[in-house]
């Protein structure tokens, strides 16, 4: 059996209540070590208050070739944005 440690993806939540964000990857034998290593590598300068790790092979992703069909349809739907609607200034802030 190959003795390379599996690859993990690391997600960190910063100080200010934002969501966990992908910050990088590392190798570790198990989840416990992955968290320890993530703490040592990715939170050395107050970058975070919470860590998630997930083994890279468990992540499913969209295929680059599907970019068009998946994401282009929303480009033409400008009415989904608040700025689409002109509201008279007299109405006040909305």
């Amino acid at each position: 059996m190959k003795n390379e440690w599996p690859l993990w993806e690391v997600f960190i939540r910063g100080q200010h209540g934002l969501s966990h964000r992908h910050v990088g990857s590392l190798h570790a034998p198990d989840a416990e070590m992955a968290i320890k290593n993530a703490r040592d590598v990715y939170t050395r300068r107050n970058e975070g208050v919470s860590i998630w790790v997930v083994e890279a092979r468990h992540i499913s992703a969209t295929a680059p070739g599907d970019k068009g069909p998946l994401f282009e349809p929303s480009e033409s739907k400008v009415y989904r944005h608040p700025t689409f609607f002109d509201i008279p200034e007299d109405v006040g802030h909305m």
Binding site: E4, L7, G24, S25, L26, H27, D40, V41, R44
Partner: peptide, 22 residues
């Protein structure tokens, strides 16, 4: 310690191209 981390970020970038760190 930072340098070890820098090595890690870069090996991880190389791994996305299909070459393992080992």
């Amino acid at each position: 310690q930072d340098e070890a981390g820098h090595g890690l970020y870069l090996y991880a970038a190389a791994e996305t191209l299909g070459e393992s760190r080992d």
